[in-house]
């Protein structure tokens, strides 16, 4: 019994310490985002490259997933709504469920699977190869040069890709609403516009920004925890990715709680 209590206590202390470190690091980086002196040619170059790698290279896959996944879910949703006789709530379902909940969740999962893993590995490899030390020797601030562009890119990518996913889902919704309910474009647009609330959009935007910050910040933090041994790279990526998925779930739950309040 004593061992069990000790174990619970230790894991609680470990979790709170890890959370404290993550939040302190987030505060440090976010405060740099607001510092205009942090931006220079080198940082802008990294930011452009990162946006290209995260948002442009993934576009064909992302659009395909959005079209397939969006269509299937929209059809299921519309058939259920028809069966339950709740056609008058179709707009609320489309905006409230598909756009506000599902779209950011799938978007962040796709970006995290691809970019968070890449960032975590990249930083861990740089740590192992002593390239972080190289930057320090030449007085290049690692937060400004390495971390800031990746985190800004995370925010920009999640927000923009979420918009894209939502547009694809709503477009497939237009097609299937015509096929299933015989809705015209004007009626569909009317139903959707009447279901949009400013508070929901604000929560959606804040959620996407928070996702963007944490799916890049956590891999960076765990990449930095790699030691000088090559074997520490997979361990750091594994731990980082697990924490990224925990963070995604926590943010999703918190956003739902805020919405319910």
């Amino acid at each position: 019994m004593k061992i069990l209590v000790e174990h619970i206590g230790l894991s609680f202390l470990h979790t709170t310490q890890s959370l404290k470190e993550t939040l302190l690091f987030a505060f440090k980086v976010v405060s740099r985002i607001l510092d205009k002196n942090a931006y220079n040619s080198a940082v802008r170059m990294v930011l452009t490259d990162q946006i290209y790698f995260t948002s442009v290279q993934i576009l064909p896959l992302f659009l395909t997933v959005a079209a397939i996944f969006g269509s299937v879910l929209v059809v299921i949703l519309m058939l259920m709504v028809k069966e339950l006789g709740m056609v008058q709530y179709i707009g609320r379902f489309m905006i409230g469920f598909m756009v506000n909940e599902l779209s950011p969740f799938i978007t962040v999962l796709l970006i995290a699977l691809r970019s968070s893993a890449a960032i975590n590995t990249e930083i861990a490899v740089m740590k192992v190869n002593q390239e972080i030390k190289t930057l320090e020797v030449f007085h290049i601030d690692t937060i400004n040069y390495l971390f800031l562009p990746r985190i800004i890119n995370g925010v920009i990518s999640v927000v923009l890709m979420n918009c894209l996913f939502s547009i694809v889902v709503l477009a497939t919704g237009l097609l299937f609403s015509k096929l299933i309910f015989g809705m015209s474009f004007n009626l569909y647009a009317d139903v959707l516009l009447n279901s949009i609330y400013f508070s929901d959009l604000l929560i959606l935007l804040l959620k996407c920004i928070t996702y963007g910050v944490f799916i890049t910040l956590i891999p960076i933090l765990y990449g930095l925890r790699a030691t000088n041994e090559l074997t520490s790279i997979p361990v750091s990526v594994l731990n980082g990715m697990v924490k990224v998925f925990i963070a995604i779930v926590i943010i999703e739950v918190l956003s739902l709680i805020i919405k319910l309040m």
Partner: peptide
Amino acid sequence: LDIPLISN
């Protein structure tokens, strides 16, 4: 050698 080129 301890301050290598940046590999990426």
